[in-house]
């Protein structure tokens, strides 16, 4: 088996150690003898390359860098949207997550249009409101996990059986994201702020696209989530159920547990 990962804007959208997510995809595939290719999609990439990917990843970035990206994606939005609607699996962190929404309202009220792929919007309430910063623990949505009752099951959710139901990470964002009806939250916030610090939701899921505020980076400490994404991508590509061989994850789970313990102290 083989898998091609498209890493969108690796040098512009990689501010918070987000490349760790790519390293985790690479290693967890290699350890299972799955051939993996990471395709770096830099400013000026062609949409043809995007079509050849099985899994997309885009990290967070500084504001100035997002302006450069917006310019580059302007002519590609249509195709990008189409690919996501055709169930292309993808993980979008922080700035990338916001970018996939309808718009981003800056602190001064200026509106930056988003790609309008995910039904959500983000607003920065202004300089008098603090950034949402800290360790975060969320409980994955049962619908996402495919653990809901049989009547609600979909072919998509069946492939999302995971061993653990929590995700840990570190969030650091000024914008508050509000979800529309077209998307589901990725999970419920147990400790931390999540999308907006108010409604208890974190992240968003649309078809096979996952948006989240979790840095840390997210995948090294949440190997079950990494495996879920790999599995979704392989099953879509090979059009059959695939069971990933288990890996020794004691170290990863210890790192996961470290954050859980840290946060329990503060509850």
């Amino acid at each position: 088996m083989n898998l091609t990962i498209g890493w969108l804007y690796p040098d512009l959208m990689s501010t918070y150690g987000d490349r760790g997510n790519i390293i985790v995809f690479e290693k967890r595939c290699q350890w299972r003898k799955i051939d993996i290719e990471v395709k770096k999609l830099d400013v000026g990439f062609s949409m043809y390359e995007l079509e050849r990917c099985d899994l997309l990843f885009m990290g967070g970035a500084q504001d100035r860098q997002q302006t450069i990206i917006a310019k580059d994606l302007k002519d590609k939005t249509h195709v990008f949207k189409d690919i996501i609607n055709r169930n292309m699996p993808g993980l979008y962190i922080c700035g990338a997550y916001q970018f996939l929404g309808n718009y981003y309202k800056e602190a001064d009220g200026a509106i930056i249009p988003g790609l309008e792929i995910l039904d959500l919007y983000t607003e920065n309430p202004g300089p008098n409101h603090p950034r949402l910063i800290g360790n975060i623990l969320i409980e994955l949505d049962p619908v996402i996990l495919g653990t809901q009752n049989a009547a609600q099951r979909t072919p998509e959710s069946d492939s999302r059986q995971v061993r653990m139901t929590t995700l840990v990470g570190f969030e650091n964002h000024g914008g508050r994201t509000y979800l529309g009806l077209g998307v589901k939250p990725l999970g419920k916030v147990k400790v931390g702020f999540g999308n907006n610090g108010k409604d208890g939701t974190e992240g968003a899921v649309y078809k096979n696209s996952f948006g989240t505020y979790l840095h840390g980076p997210i995948l090294p400490k949440n190997p079950h989530f990494a495996d879920m994404l790999i599995k979704i991508a392989l099953e879509r590509k090979y059009k059959k159920p695939i069971d990933l061989s288990p890996l020794e994850d004691a170290l990863e789970l210890n790192a996961h547990e470290t954050v859980v313990k840290k946060l329990r102290i503060h509850i």
């Binding site: 760790g20 390293i23 985790v24 290693k27 350890w31 090294p220 400490k221 890996l247 020794e248 004691a250 170290l251 990863e252 210890n254 790192a255 547990e257 470290t258």
Partner: peptide
Amino acid sequence: RCFDMGVRIKYSMEIKNCSP
């Protein structure tokens, strides 16, 4: 955060099965 660092080093090397 020694385990975070442990995971980082594990993924930088060719270690497949890593005891904690």
